[in-house]
Design a binder for these strands. Structure first.
Lengths: 237, 237
DNA sequence: AGCGGTGAAATTGCATGCAATCTTGCACGC
DNA sequence: GCGTGCAAGATTGCATGCAATTTCACCGCT
Protein backbone atom coordinates (compact mmCIF):
# COMPACT_ATOMS: atom_id res chain seq x y z
CA UNK A 1 0.00 0.00 0.00
CA UNK A 2 3.00 2.24 0.06
CA UNK A 3 3.54 3.31 -3.53
CA UNK A 4 -0.12 2.98 -4.35
CA UNK A 5 -0.60 6.64 -3.62
CA UNK A 6 1.06 7.73 -6.85
CA UNK A 7 -1.23 7.05 -9.74
CA UNK A 8 0.77 8.31 -12.66
CA UNK A 9 -2.41 8.39 -14.73
CA UNK A 10 -3.98 11.05 -12.54
CA UNK A 11 -1.41 13.75 -11.88
CA UNK A 12 -1.48 14.05 -8.08
CA UNK A 13 -3.52 12.23 -5.50
CA UNK A 14 -6.00 15.03 -4.94
CA UNK A 15 -9.09 14.66 -2.83
CA UNK A 16 -10.18 11.49 -1.14
CA UNK A 17 -10.00 8.16 -2.84
CA UNK A 18 -13.76 7.78 -3.04
CA UNK A 19 -14.12 11.18 -4.66
CA UNK A 20 -11.63 10.27 -7.33
CA UNK A 21 -13.33 6.95 -7.95
CA UNK A 22 -16.70 8.62 -8.29
CA UNK A 23 -15.28 11.20 -10.67
CA UNK A 24 -13.48 8.64 -12.76
CA UNK A 25 -16.35 6.19 -13.09
CA UNK A 26 -18.87 8.98 -13.63
CA UNK A 27 -16.73 10.34 -16.45
CA UNK A 28 -16.47 6.89 -17.98
CA UNK A 29 -20.25 6.55 -17.90
CA UNK A 30 -21.07 10.04 -19.15
CA UNK A 31 -18.43 9.86 -21.88
CA UNK A 32 -19.79 6.55 -23.02
CA UNK A 33 -16.77 4.40 -22.21
CA UNK A 34 -19.02 2.43 -19.86
CA UNK A 35 -22.25 1.78 -21.76
CA UNK A 36 -25.55 1.25 -19.96
CA UNK A 37 -26.05 -2.24 -18.63
CA UNK A 38 -22.40 -3.07 -18.07
CA UNK A 39 -21.80 -4.87 -14.80
CA UNK A 40 -19.61 -3.07 -12.29
CA UNK A 41 -18.01 -5.71 -10.11
CA UNK A 42 -16.37 -4.47 -6.98
CA UNK A 43 -13.27 -6.64 -7.19
CA UNK A 44 -12.72 -5.77 -10.82
CA UNK A 45 -12.95 -2.04 -10.17
CA UNK A 46 -10.78 -2.40 -7.09
CA UNK A 47 -8.12 -4.15 -9.13
CA UNK A 48 -8.31 -1.61 -11.93
CA UNK A 49 -7.83 1.30 -9.57
CA UNK A 50 -5.38 -0.52 -7.30
CA UNK A 51 -7.51 -0.01 -4.22
CA UNK A 52 -9.54 -2.20 -1.92
CA UNK A 53 -13.21 -2.91 -2.25
CA UNK A 54 -14.27 -0.55 0.52
CA UNK A 55 -13.83 2.76 -1.32
CA UNK A 56 -15.18 1.12 -4.47
CA UNK A 57 -18.35 0.15 -2.66
CA UNK A 58 -18.84 3.66 -1.32
CA UNK A 59 -18.23 5.15 -4.75
CA UNK A 60 -20.76 2.80 -6.34
CA UNK A 61 -23.37 3.74 -3.78
CA UNK A 62 -22.77 7.42 -4.42
CA UNK A 63 -23.07 6.90 -8.14
CA UNK A 64 -26.30 5.02 -7.54
CA UNK A 65 -27.60 7.96 -5.50
CA UNK A 66 -26.75 10.18 -8.46
CA UNK A 67 -28.67 7.93 -10.79
CA UNK A 68 -25.68 6.94 -12.89
CA UNK A 69 -25.62 3.31 -11.76
CA UNK A 70 -28.24 0.88 -10.56
CA UNK A 71 -27.42 -0.94 -7.36
CA UNK A 72 -29.47 -4.06 -6.82
CA UNK A 73 -29.00 -5.35 -3.26
CA UNK A 74 -26.93 -8.52 -3.15
CA UNK A 75 -26.93 -8.56 -6.93
CA UNK A 76 -24.26 -6.10 -7.85
CA UNK A 77 -24.24 -2.80 -9.67
CA UNK A 78 -24.65 -2.05 -13.35
CA UNK A 79 -24.35 1.13 -15.34
CA UNK A 80 -27.80 2.65 -15.26
CA UNK A 81 -30.09 1.62 -18.05
CA UNK A 82 -33.09 3.58 -19.10
CA UNK A 83 -36.27 3.03 -20.99
CA UNK A 84 -37.37 5.28 -23.78
CA UNK A 85 -40.19 6.59 -21.63
CA UNK A 86 -37.88 7.36 -18.76
CA UNK A 87 -35.44 9.16 -21.05
CA UNK A 88 -38.33 11.23 -22.35
CA UNK A 89 -39.18 12.13 -18.78
CA UNK A 90 -35.62 13.12 -17.98
CA UNK A 91 -35.53 15.40 -20.99
CA UNK A 92 -38.79 16.97 -19.90
CA UNK A 93 -37.31 17.66 -16.48
CA UNK A 94 -34.25 19.17 -18.14
CA UNK A 95 -36.42 21.33 -20.36
CA UNK A 96 -38.45 22.64 -17.45
CA UNK A 97 -35.43 23.24 -15.24
CA UNK A 98 -33.56 25.03 -18.00
CA UNK A 99 -36.66 27.06 -18.66
CA UNK A 100 -36.70 28.18 -15.05
CA UNK A 101 -32.99 29.01 -15.23
CA UNK A 102 -33.43 30.98 -18.43
CA UNK A 103 -36.31 33.00 -17.04
CA UNK A 104 -34.46 33.83 -13.83
CA UNK A 105 -31.23 34.51 -15.71
CA UNK A 106 -33.00 36.99 -17.96
CA UNK A 107 -34.13 38.82 -14.86
CA UNK A 108 -31.01 38.57 -12.76
CA UNK A 109 -27.85 38.31 -14.85
CA UNK A 110 -25.39 41.12 -14.34
CA UNK A 111 -24.20 43.06 -17.37
CA UNK A 112 -20.88 41.24 -17.13
CA UNK A 113 -22.64 37.87 -17.15
CA UNK A 114 -24.72 38.88 -20.15
CA UNK A 115 -21.56 39.89 -21.98
CA UNK A 116 -19.89 36.61 -21.07
CA UNK A 117 -22.88 34.63 -22.32
CA UNK A 118 -22.91 36.59 -25.55
CA UNK A 119 -19.17 36.05 -25.95
CA UNK A 120 -19.55 32.28 -25.50
CA UNK A 121 -22.32 32.30 -28.03
CA UNK A 122 -20.30 34.30 -30.55
CA UNK A 123 -17.30 32.04 -30.07
CA UNK A 124 -19.36 28.97 -30.82
CA UNK A 125 -20.50 30.48 -34.11
CA UNK A 126 -17.03 29.93 -35.55
CA UNK A 127 -17.17 26.26 -34.54
CA UNK A 128 -20.45 25.85 -36.37
CA UNK A 129 -18.81 27.08 -39.55
CA UNK A 130 -15.81 24.81 -39.12
CA UNK A 131 -18.09 21.94 -38.15
CA UNK A 132 -16.02 20.97 -35.12
CA UNK A 133 -18.56 18.92 -33.23
CA UNK A 134 -16.38 18.12 -30.26
CA UNK A 135 -15.31 21.70 -29.63
CA UNK A 136 -18.88 22.86 -30.13
CA UNK A 137 -20.14 20.40 -27.57
CA UNK A 138 -17.58 21.65 -25.06
CA UNK A 139 -18.64 25.24 -25.62
CA UNK A 140 -22.26 24.13 -25.55
CA UNK A 141 -21.74 22.79 -22.04
CA UNK A 142 -20.20 26.04 -20.95
CA UNK A 143 -23.07 27.97 -22.49
CA UNK A 144 -25.66 26.02 -20.57
CA UNK A 145 -23.57 26.18 -17.40
CA UNK A 146 -23.42 29.96 -17.73
CA UNK A 147 -27.18 29.98 -18.02
CA UNK A 148 -27.60 27.92 -14.87
CA UNK A 149 -25.24 30.17 -12.98
CA UNK A 150 -26.98 33.25 -14.27
CA UNK A 151 -30.11 32.31 -12.35
CA UNK A 152 -28.21 33.27 -9.19
CA UNK A 153 -29.51 30.30 -7.27
CA UNK A 154 -26.90 27.74 -6.26
CA UNK A 155 -29.52 25.18 -5.24
CA UNK A 156 -31.18 25.44 -8.62
CA UNK A 157 -27.80 25.16 -10.30
CA UNK A 158 -27.01 22.00 -8.38
CA UNK A 159 -30.38 20.51 -9.25
CA UNK A 160 -30.12 21.15 -12.97
CA UNK A 161 -26.50 20.03 -13.11
CA UNK A 162 -27.46 16.78 -11.43
CA UNK A 163 -30.24 16.27 -13.95
CA UNK A 164 -27.84 17.08 -16.75
CA UNK A 165 -25.37 14.45 -15.54
CA UNK A 166 -28.09 11.84 -15.42
CA UNK A 167 -29.25 12.59 -18.91
CA UNK A 168 -25.73 13.01 -20.29
CA UNK A 169 -25.05 9.29 -20.08
CA UNK A 170 -27.76 8.68 -22.66
CA UNK A 171 -27.58 11.68 -24.95
CA UNK A 172 -24.01 11.58 -26.13
CA UNK A 173 -23.57 12.31 -29.79
CA UNK A 174 -26.71 14.37 -30.18
CA UNK A 175 -24.83 16.44 -32.74
CA UNK A 176 -24.30 13.42 -34.93
CA UNK A 177 -27.67 14.08 -36.46
CA UNK A 178 -27.07 15.96 -39.62
CA UNK A 179 -27.37 19.71 -39.38
CA UNK A 180 -27.89 19.77 -35.66
CA UNK A 181 -24.92 22.07 -35.13
CA UNK A 182 -26.29 25.03 -37.04
CA UNK A 183 -29.80 24.54 -35.71
CA UNK A 184 -28.54 24.28 -32.16
CA UNK A 185 -26.72 27.57 -32.58
CA UNK A 186 -29.84 29.26 -33.92
CA UNK A 187 -31.86 27.99 -30.98
CA UNK A 188 -29.24 29.32 -28.61
CA UNK A 189 -29.39 32.59 -30.49
CA UNK A 190 -33.04 33.02 -29.62
CA UNK A 191 -32.30 32.31 -25.98
CA UNK A 192 -29.45 34.81 -25.90
CA UNK A 193 -31.53 37.52 -27.53
CA UNK A 194 -34.39 37.05 -25.12
CA UNK A 195 -32.05 37.16 -22.15
CA UNK A 196 -30.29 40.28 -23.38
CA UNK A 197 -33.70 41.90 -23.75
CA UNK A 198 -34.59 40.78 -20.23
CA UNK A 199 -37.61 38.86 -21.50
CA UNK A 200 -37.65 35.93 -19.12
CA UNK A 201 -40.74 34.21 -20.46
CA UNK A 202 -39.44 34.30 -24.01
CA UNK A 203 -36.10 32.92 -22.87
CA UNK A 204 -37.84 30.13 -20.98
CA UNK A 205 -39.98 29.25 -24.00
CA UNK A 206 -36.95 29.29 -26.30
CA UNK A 207 -34.79 27.04 -24.16
CA UNK A 208 -37.63 24.64 -23.47
CA UNK A 209 -38.16 24.28 -27.18
CA UNK A 210 -34.41 23.84 -27.60
CA UNK A 211 -34.22 21.00 -25.12
CA UNK A 212 -37.27 19.32 -26.60
CA UNK A 213 -35.59 19.43 -30.00
CA UNK A 214 -32.44 17.98 -28.50
CA UNK A 215 -34.58 15.25 -27.01
CA UNK A 216 -36.04 14.42 -30.39
CA UNK A 217 -32.58 14.40 -31.97
CA UNK A 218 -31.22 12.13 -29.26
CA UNK A 219 -34.14 9.74 -29.56
CA UNK A 220 -33.59 9.61 -33.29
CA UNK A 221 -29.91 8.91 -32.91
CA UNK A 222 -30.37 6.33 -30.19
CA UNK A 223 -33.08 4.52 -32.10
CA UNK A 224 -30.81 4.38 -35.13
CA UNK A 225 -27.92 2.83 -33.24
CA UNK A 226 -29.14 0.49 -30.55
CA UNK A 227 -32.28 -0.07 -28.52
CA UNK A 228 -31.69 0.92 -24.94
CA UNK A 229 -34.49 -1.02 -23.32
CA UNK A 230 -36.20 -4.28 -24.10
CA UNK A 231 -39.27 -2.38 -25.22
CA UNK A 232 -40.70 -4.51 -28.00
CA UNK A 233 -43.38 -1.91 -28.57
CA UNK A 234 -41.74 -0.27 -31.55
CA UNK A 235 -39.89 -3.32 -32.72
CA UNK A 236 -39.68 -2.15 -36.27
CA UNK A 237 -36.26 -3.21 -37.31
CA UNK B 1 -31.20 9.66 22.97
CA UNK B 2 -32.17 6.90 25.27
CA UNK B 3 -35.55 5.57 24.24
CA UNK B 4 -35.21 6.76 20.70
CA UNK B 5 -35.51 3.19 19.49
CA UNK B 6 -39.27 3.39 19.17
CA UNK B 7 -39.10 1.50 15.92
CA UNK B 8 -41.96 -0.83 16.68
CA UNK B 9 -43.25 -0.23 13.19
CA UNK B 10 -40.44 -2.20 11.55
CA UNK B 11 -39.50 -5.04 13.87
CA UNK B 12 -38.12 -7.39 11.21
CA UNK B 13 -34.87 -6.59 9.45
CA UNK B 14 -36.22 -5.62 6.05
CA UNK B 15 -33.96 -4.33 3.33
CA UNK B 16 -30.25 -3.93 3.65
CA UNK B 17 -28.64 -2.53 6.73
CA UNK B 18 -27.48 0.61 4.97
CA UNK B 19 -30.97 1.33 3.70
CA UNK B 20 -32.39 1.08 7.19
CA UNK B 21 -29.67 3.33 8.55
CA UNK B 22 -30.30 5.93 5.88
CA UNK B 23 -34.02 5.84 6.51
CA UNK B 24 -33.65 6.07 10.25
CA UNK B 25 -31.14 8.91 10.31
CA UNK B 26 -32.97 10.77 7.56
CA UNK B 27 -36.16 10.56 9.58
CA UNK B 28 -34.38 11.82 12.66
CA UNK B 29 -33.07 14.79 10.70
CA UNK B 30 -36.28 15.64 8.88
CA UNK B 31 -38.36 15.24 12.02
CA UNK B 32 -36.02 17.50 13.92
CA UNK B 33 -34.68 14.98 16.42
CA UNK B 34 -31.24 15.63 14.97
CA UNK B 35 -30.91 19.40 14.66
CA UNK B 36 -28.62 21.01 12.09
CA UNK B 37 -24.97 21.16 13.10
CA UNK B 38 -24.98 18.08 15.33
CA UNK B 39 -21.91 15.93 14.83
CA UNK B 40 -22.51 12.44 13.51
CA UNK B 41 -19.61 10.30 14.69
CA UNK B 42 -19.29 6.93 13.07
CA UNK B 43 -18.49 4.96 16.20
CA UNK B 44 -21.33 6.56 18.11
CA UNK B 45 -23.88 5.77 15.39
CA UNK B 46 -22.45 2.29 15.02
CA UNK B 47 -22.89 1.69 18.73
CA UNK B 48 -26.40 3.11 18.75
CA UNK B 49 -27.56 0.88 15.91
CA UNK B 50 -25.48 -2.11 17.04
CA UNK B 51 -23.63 -2.37 13.76
CA UNK B 52 -20.09 -1.82 12.59
CA UNK B 53 -18.73 1.40 11.14
CA UNK B 54 -18.79 0.20 7.55
CA UNK B 55 -22.55 0.44 6.90
CA UNK B 56 -22.64 3.63 8.95
CA UNK B 57 -20.04 5.20 6.70
CA UNK B 58 -21.95 4.24 3.59
CA UNK B 59 -25.17 5.57 5.04
CA UNK B 60 -23.55 8.87 5.94
CA UNK B 61 -22.19 9.25 2.44
CA UNK B 62 -25.60 8.59 0.96
CA UNK B 63 -27.18 11.12 3.27
CA UNK B 64 -24.52 13.60 2.22
CA UNK B 65 -25.36 12.93 -1.42
CA UNK B 66 -28.98 13.69 -0.54
CA UNK B 67 -27.99 16.95 1.08
CA UNK B 68 -29.16 16.00 4.55
CA UNK B 69 -25.68 15.85 6.08
CA UNK B 70 -22.41 17.58 5.35
CA UNK B 71 -19.42 15.29 5.03
CA UNK B 72 -16.12 17.10 5.45
CA UNK B 73 -13.24 14.84 4.35
CA UNK B 74 -11.22 13.65 7.32
CA UNK B 75 -13.26 15.87 9.55
CA UNK B 76 -16.42 13.91 10.10
CA UNK B 77 -20.04 14.48 9.25
CA UNK B 78 -22.57 16.86 10.72
CA UNK B 79 -26.27 17.32 10.16
CA UNK B 80 -26.53 19.76 7.28
CA UNK B 81 -26.65 23.38 8.25
CA UNK B 82 -27.98 26.06 6.02
CA UNK B 83 -27.73 29.79 5.67
CA UNK B 84 -30.75 31.99 5.30
CA UNK B 85 -29.81 32.70 1.70
CA UNK B 86 -29.45 29.04 0.89
CA UNK B 87 -32.81 28.24 2.49
CA UNK B 88 -34.35 30.96 0.38
CA UNK B 89 -32.82 29.34 -2.67
CA UNK B 90 -34.16 25.91 -1.75
CA UNK B 91 -37.64 27.33 -1.36
CA UNK B 92 -37.35 28.99 -4.72
CA UNK B 93 -36.41 25.67 -6.28
CA UNK B 94 -39.38 24.06 -4.53
CA UNK B 95 -41.70 26.78 -5.77
CA UNK B 96 -40.54 26.43 -9.35
CA UNK B 97 -40.63 22.64 -9.32
CA UNK B 98 -44.09 22.58 -7.78
CA UNK B 99 -45.17 25.13 -10.34
CA UNK B 100 -44.04 22.81 -13.12
CA UNK B 101 -45.82 19.89 -11.46
CA UNK B 102 -49.02 21.89 -11.07
CA UNK B 103 -49.03 23.00 -14.68
CA UNK B 104 -48.44 19.50 -15.98
CA UNK B 105 -50.91 18.02 -13.52
CA UNK B 106 -53.61 20.39 -14.70
CA UNK B 107 -53.01 19.15 -18.22
CA UNK B 108 -52.52 15.47 -17.54
CA UNK B 109 -54.39 14.30 -14.46
CA UNK B 110 -56.99 11.66 -15.08
CA UNK B 111 -60.53 12.29 -13.85
CA UNK B 112 -59.90 9.81 -11.05
CA UNK B 113 -56.79 11.67 -9.98
CA UNK B 114 -58.63 14.97 -10.01
CA UNK B 115 -61.31 13.47 -7.83
CA UNK B 116 -58.72 12.08 -5.44
CA UNK B 117 -57.01 15.46 -5.17
CA UNK B 118 -60.32 17.15 -4.53
CA UNK B 119 -61.16 14.54 -1.90
CA UNK B 120 -57.86 15.09 -0.10
CA UNK B 121 -58.48 18.80 -0.19
CA UNK B 122 -62.00 18.44 1.17
CA UNK B 123 -60.83 16.12 3.92
CA UNK B 124 -58.24 18.64 5.07
CA UNK B 125 -60.93 21.31 5.42
CA UNK B 126 -62.25 19.54 8.49
CA UNK B 127 -58.80 19.56 10.06
CA UNK B 128 -58.56 23.31 9.52
CA UNK B 129 -61.75 23.77 11.54
CA UNK B 130 -60.56 21.49 14.31
CA UNK B 131 -57.11 23.10 14.21
CA UNK B 132 -55.27 19.79 14.20
CA UNK B 133 -51.90 20.93 12.98
CA UNK B 134 -50.25 17.53 12.92
CA UNK B 135 -53.00 15.82 11.01
CA UNK B 136 -53.19 18.74 8.63
CA UNK B 137 -49.48 18.51 7.94
CA UNK B 138 -49.81 14.81 7.16
CA UNK B 139 -52.64 15.48 4.74
CA UNK B 140 -50.71 18.43 3.35
CA UNK B 141 -47.87 16.10 2.43
CA UNK B 142 -50.27 13.75 0.70
CA UNK B 143 -51.82 16.66 -1.17
CA UNK B 144 -48.50 17.80 -2.53
CA UNK B 145 -47.47 14.22 -3.29
CA UNK B 146 -50.66 13.76 -5.30
CA UNK B 147 -49.78 16.89 -7.23
CA UNK B 148 -46.29 15.59 -8.02
CA UNK B 149 -47.68 12.28 -9.17
CA UNK B 150 -50.32 13.99 -11.24
CA UNK B 151 -47.64 15.43 -13.51
CA UNK B 152 -47.19 11.89 -14.85
CA UNK B 153 -43.44 12.18 -14.88
CA UNK B 154 -41.60 9.90 -12.48
CA UNK B 155 -38.29 11.69 -12.96
CA UNK B 156 -39.90 15.00 -12.09
CA UNK B 157 -41.56 13.40 -9.10
CA UNK B 158 -38.23 12.08 -7.85
CA UNK B 159 -36.60 15.46 -8.31
CA UNK B 160 -39.23 17.41 -6.43
CA UNK B 161 -39.44 14.81 -3.66
CA UNK B 162 -35.68 15.03 -3.19
CA UNK B 163 -35.90 18.80 -2.99
CA UNK B 164 -38.75 18.49 -0.52
CA UNK B 165 -36.70 16.20 1.72
CA UNK B 166 -33.83 18.66 1.70
CA UNK B 167 -36.02 21.57 2.64
CA UNK B 168 -38.06 19.55 5.13
CA UNK B 169 -35.21 19.47 7.60
CA UNK B 170 -35.42 23.23 7.96
CA UNK B 171 -39.08 24.02 7.57
CA UNK B 172 -40.65 22.02 10.30
CA UNK B 173 -43.37 23.78 12.21
CA UNK B 174 -44.35 26.16 9.45
CA UNK B 175 -47.90 25.93 10.70
CA UNK B 176 -46.91 27.31 14.08
CA UNK B 177 -47.33 30.77 12.68
CA UNK B 178 -50.76 31.92 13.68
CA UNK B 179 -53.48 31.47 11.12
CA UNK B 180 -51.32 29.60 8.66
CA UNK B 181 -53.65 26.62 8.61
CA UNK B 182 -56.63 28.42 7.16
CA UNK B 183 -54.54 30.43 4.75
CA UNK B 184 -52.73 27.33 3.58
CA UNK B 185 -56.06 25.70 2.84
CA UNK B 186 -57.25 28.69 0.87
CA UNK B 187 -54.05 28.68 -1.18
CA UNK B 188 -54.53 25.00 -1.88
CA UNK B 189 -58.09 25.79 -2.85
CA UNK B 190 -56.92 28.07 -5.63
CA UNK B 191 -54.56 25.37 -6.88
CA UNK B 192 -57.29 22.75 -6.86
CA UNK B 193 -59.72 24.96 -8.71
CA UNK B 194 -57.19 25.83 -11.38
CA UNK B 195 -56.32 22.17 -11.86
CA UNK B 196 -59.95 21.10 -12.06
CA UNK B 197 -60.44 23.76 -14.72
CA UNK B 198 -57.37 22.50 -16.56
CA UNK B 199 -55.73 25.89 -16.35
CA UNK B 200 -52.08 24.90 -15.96
CA UNK B 201 -50.61 28.37 -15.88
CA UNK B 202 -53.00 29.50 -13.18
CA UNK B 203 -52.25 26.38 -11.15
CA UNK B 204 -48.52 27.01 -11.51
CA UNK B 205 -48.90 30.62 -10.43
CA UNK B 206 -51.04 29.64 -7.46
CA UNK B 207 -48.71 26.96 -6.14
CA UNK B 208 -45.64 29.12 -6.64
CA UNK B 209 -47.27 31.85 -4.61
CA UNK B 210 -48.23 29.23 -2.02
CA UNK B 211 -44.67 27.98 -1.62
CA UNK B 212 -43.31 31.52 -1.47
CA UNK B 213 -45.75 32.24 1.35
CA UNK B 214 -44.68 29.07 3.12
CA UNK B 215 -41.11 30.27 2.72
CA UNK B 216 -41.93 33.58 4.33
CA UNK B 217 -43.75 31.85 7.17
CA UNK B 218 -40.84 29.48 7.75
CA UNK B 219 -38.34 32.32 7.72
CA UNK B 220 -40.46 34.17 10.22
CA UNK B 221 -40.71 31.18 12.49
CA UNK B 222 -37.04 30.33 12.24
CA UNK B 223 -35.96 33.90 12.90
CA UNK B 224 -38.19 34.00 15.96
CA UNK B 225 -36.66 30.86 17.44
CA UNK B 226 -33.01 30.66 16.57
CA UNK B 227 -30.75 32.14 13.95
CA UNK B 228 -29.50 29.44 11.66
CA UNK B 229 -26.58 31.32 10.20
CA UNK B 230 -24.52 34.33 11.19
CA UNK B 231 -25.82 36.32 8.28
CA UNK B 232 -26.47 39.79 9.64
CA UNK B 233 -27.13 41.25 6.24
CA UNK B 234 -30.83 41.07 5.62
CA UNK B 235 -30.67 41.16 1.87
CA UNK B 236 -34.24 42.23 1.68
CA UNK B 237 -33.64 44.79 -1.04
C1' DA C 1 0.28 36.88 29.17
C1' DG C 2 0.09 35.77 24.29
C1' DC C 3 1.67 32.81 20.61
C1' DG C 4 3.46 29.07 18.09
C1' DG C 5 5.28 24.29 18.16
C1' DT C 6 4.58 19.38 19.56
C1' DG C 7 2.87 14.99 20.74
C1' DA C 8 -0.87 12.08 22.19
C1' DA C 9 -5.73 11.06 21.84
C1' DA C 10 -9.56 10.95 18.91
C1' DT C 11 -11.50 10.30 14.54
C1' DT C 12 -11.73 9.20 9.80
C1' DG C 13 -9.80 6.56 5.57
C1' DC C 14 -8.69 2.36 3.73
C1' DA C 15 -7.51 -2.75 3.66
C1' DT C 16 -8.59 -7.37 4.73
C1' DG C 17 -11.37 -11.37 6.29
C1' DC C 18 -15.47 -13.90 7.12
C1' DA C 19 -20.49 -14.65 6.60
C1' DA C 20 -24.59 -14.35 3.73
C1' DT C 21 -26.69 -14.34 -0.60
C1' DC C 22 -27.00 -15.02 -5.40
C1' DT C 23 -25.72 -17.46 -9.65
C1' DT C 24 -24.66 -21.42 -12.33
C1' DG C 25 -24.04 -25.92 -13.78
C1' DC C 26 -25.42 -30.62 -13.30
C1' DA C 27 -27.56 -34.60 -11.68
C1' DC C 28 -31.91 -36.59 -10.63
C1' DG C 29 -36.76 -37.60 -11.06
C1' DC C 30 -41.10 -37.10 -13.52
C1' DG D 1 -36.97 -34.53 -22.88
C1' DC D 2 -37.65 -31.12 -19.54
C1' DG D 3 -38.33 -29.15 -15.17
C1' DT D 4 -36.60 -29.26 -10.24
C1' DG D 5 -33.38 -29.56 -6.46
C1' DC D 6 -28.86 -28.91 -4.94
C1' DA D 7 -24.17 -27.97 -4.37
C1' DA D 8 -20.01 -25.33 -5.66
C1' DG D 9 -18.30 -21.06 -7.23
C1' DA D 10 -18.79 -16.26 -7.42
C1' DT D 11 -20.18 -11.96 -5.53
C1' DT D 12 -21.90 -8.83 -2.23
C1' DG D 13 -22.75 -7.43 2.90
C1' DC D 14 -20.77 -6.55 7.07
C1' DA D 15 -17.10 -6.66 10.82
C1' DT D 16 -12.58 -5.77 12.32
C1' DG D 17 -7.84 -3.86 12.25
C1' DC D 18 -4.32 -0.74 10.94
C1' DA D 19 -2.68 3.66 8.82
C1' DA D 20 -3.34 8.61 8.08
C1' DT D 21 -5.16 12.82 9.33
C1' DT D 22 -7.11 16.02 12.45
C1' DT D 23 -7.80 17.98 16.94
C1' DC D 24 -6.44 19.74 21.16
C1' DA D 25 -4.17 20.20 25.36
C1' DC D 26 0.31 21.21 27.02
C1' DC D 27 4.75 23.29 26.99
C1' DG D 28 8.37 26.40 25.89
C1' DC D 29 9.50 30.82 23.80
C1' DT D 30 9.09 35.84 22.83
Amino acid sequence: MRAAKRQTTTPPARGTLVERLVQSVADDIVEGRLPPGVRLEEVELAARFQVSRTPVREALRLLAANGLVENRPNRGAIVATISEDRLYELFEVMAELEGVCARLAAQRMTPAERQALEALHAESAALVRSGDREAYEALNSRFHAALYRGAHNAALEDTVLAARRRVAAFRRAQFHVLGRLAKSWEEHDQVVRAILCGDGDAAARAIRAHVQIVRAASAEYIASTHPLAPHPLSANG
